[in-house]
Each structure stands twice: as structure tokens, then as C-alpha cells.
């Protein structure tokens, strides 16, 4: 069921390639907003020096310290930008996810009006759903403290360092699992909103929780499998990117292409996850998939009523 979900998910994403591009461009443009002041500072500081070329090789750490020391204004700029941009990006992603879920629910590939209508329709509800989900997220994130408790219980308050060390890794693993579970609950709740037109977010949240934990093996395997896939490709990407260090335009261009290819892959992965989860959710509910639903906001609201 997992593999067939991923297969169907991928097929659905393939039918909606433009959506991958939309998600990618949104990500790229917000990151550009964050990056440009940094680039301007680097260019101003080192753009007419030999450091400007040296930076194409391995990063000289001296340079980073000098840049920070001599560009104090960067800190105030980033103090603001790091608050605003990620928050705005998160909202935009949430907005776009409505379009993506609506598109996958329709099952007939990307259509611009349907996508944007879906995005607009569910944005408010997804926000409310997020607020409803916060206590659930908080509980799930407490999972990591299981390690703290067990460590204290078994090894006392003065454990050897290897207990702390391996305990730290266990805690890390539990945090990863918590984040995956939070995302899963939120995804399945959103799927419920889109597939049923539900307007009471506590109902969708409850449905999300039931879907995730009622079928934990399958839902978790699907989400964690795709998460691992992303991590694995990152692990392969990293040493390759590190090795692309030479004062050579071709090398720099290759690095840029590789980076963007990876980000495109991440977007593909995210949409595949949405689509596969939607398929799995329908399977678990015994419903035929994909489900034809209206993208007309009024119609959806009406159906729910």
C-alpha cells in the first residue's frame, strides 16, 4: 500500500509539473530576499579584492569573521529579515498547499484556476487548523523528554558521559520522529478538509490524528520513507557540493545548478508526499481515489453545511 501510494503520488505530481515549479519559485524568491543583503555586503566588502576570487575556493573562515566585524549593520538587517521572511514564506507555503491538495484531490492534473481557487479556499481554514493543532504539536514534541525521563530513572542524576552522548542521539531521533508526526497530523487533517469540505477544524484535526495513529505503521512508513529519501539525497549532495570549490566560473555554475536541482527535488518530494498521503488516506477510508471535488469555494462551504 505504501509503494502504491508513492507510485500514485508520483504519477499525480508528474501530471502537475508546473506546481513543482510554483513551489520551487516561491522558495527561491523568498530565499533570494534573504540572500541579497548578504550578497551586497560581500560584494561591497570584497568585490574588488583578491578575496573576491579566493571565495570561489574553500571558504576562508577569517573572511567570515572580518565580514561580521566590519558589517555590523548586517546584524540589524537580518534581525528583522529573519523574523519576517520565514514567517511570510510559511504563510505562502500554506496558501500554496491548499492549491496542491485541491489539485491532487481532483486528480486530473494541474489547472491554474483550480490550483489558485483551491489555495484561496483553504488558506483561512488551514490557518485555523494550525492554531487548533498547536497543543497537539506541543504534546508530540514532548516525546523527546521520554529519553530524559528514562535516563534519569535508569542512570540517575550523574550518568557517565556515554549515557549522555547516546541519550542525546536518542533524543535527537525522537525529535525527528516528533516533527514527522506533527507534519503528518497536519497533512492528514488538511487532506480531510479538502476531501470533505469540512469547516470545523477541530473535526479535521481529530480526523488527522485518528488517521495517523489509527494506521501508524502505514502512515508513518510513508512519511518517514520520503523524509529519509530527502535526507539521503542531501547526504549525497553535500560532499559533492563541498568538492566544487575552485576559482572557476564553470565550477561555480555547476554548483549553482546542482543546488537548485536539489531544491527542485525537495519540492517534488514535498508534493509527492502530499499526493501519496491523500491517496493513502482515501484508501484507508475505502473511498475511490482520486476524488472529484469542486473548487468553487461556495460549493465547498455548502457541501460542508
Amino acid at each position: 500500500m505504501i509503494l502504491s501510494s508513492i507510485k500514485t503520488g508520483l504519477a499525480q505530481v508528474w501530471k502537475s509539473k508546473r506546481m513543482v515549479l510554483i513551489f520551487f519559485l516561491a522558495n527561491l524568491s523568498f530565499a533570494l530576499v534573504l540572500m541579497l543583503p548578504f550578497r551586497a555586503a560581500v560584494s561591497n566588502f570584497a568585490g574588488e579584492t583578491l578575496m573576491g576570487t579566493k571565495l570561489a575556493g574553500h571558504l576562508p573562515i577569517d573572511f567570515i569573521f572580518e565580514l561580521m566585524k566590519n558589517n555590523k549593520s548586517l546584524f540589524s538587517i537580518y534581525g528583522t529579515l529573519f523574523m519576517l521572511v520565514p514567517a511570510s514564506y510559511w504563510l505562502l507555503s500554506l496558501f500554496l498547499s491548499g492549491g496542491a491538495f485541491a489539485t491532487f484531490a481532483r486528480g486530473d492534473g494541474y489547472s491554474s484556476p483550480a490550483f489558485w481557487a483551491g489555495a484561496a479556499t483553504y488558506f483561512g481554514r488551514f490557518n485555523r487548523l494550525f492554531l487548533w493543532s498547536l497543543p497537539v504539536f506541543a504534546v508530540l514534541l514532548c516525546l523527546q523528554f521520554l529519553e530524559t525521563g528514562f535516563q534519569r530513572l535508569i542512570f540517575g542524576s550523574d550518568p557517565y558521559e556515554y549515557v549522555k552522548y547516546w541519550g542525546g542521539w536518542v533524543k535527537y531521533g525522537l525529535r525527528v520522529i516528533s516533527f514527522v508526526l506533527c507534519a503528518m497530523v497536519y497533512d492528514y487533517a488538511r487532506i480531510h478538509v479538502v476531501t470533505t469540505g469540512e469547516t470545523r477544524m477541530r473535526v479535521s484535526l481529530w480526523h488527522g490524528i485518528r488517521t495517523v495513529f489509527g494506521n501508524l505503521g502505514r502512515t508513518f512508513a510513508l512519511a518517514f520513507g520520503l523524509f529519509l529519501c530527502g535526507a539521503l539525497v542531501l547526504a549525497i549532495y553535500n560532499p559533492i557540493a563541498d568538492s566544487l570549490a575552485a576559482p572557476n566560473a564553470f565550477v561555480v555554475l555547476t554548483l549553482f545548478v546542482l543546488q537548485q536541482a536539489y531544491m527542485l527535488f525537495r519540492m517534488l518530494l514535498r508534493l509527492t508526499l502530499y499526493s501519496s498521503q491523500l491517496f493513502l488516506s482515501n484508501k484507508l477510508a475505502g473511498a475511490p481515489a482520486p476524488l472529484e471535488i469542486s473548487t468553487d469555494p461556495q460549493g465547498l462551504e455548502g457541501a460542508a453545511a
Binding site: N27, L34, M35, R39, V42, G47, M51, K54, A56, V252
Partner: peptide, 17 residues
């Protein structure tokens, strides 16, 4: 000298993305 500036910008951009 844009080469290094582009490189460090590109790497920063990626991690921000």
C-alpha cells in the same frame, strides 16, 4: 571579482532555501 562573491552567495542561497 564576482566569481567568489557568486559562489558564497550561491551557497548561502541554497542553505536559506
Amino acid at each position: 571579482q564576482t566569481l567568489g562573491v557568486n559562489k558564497i552567495s550561491s551557497r548561502t542561497l541554497f542553505w536559506l532555501q
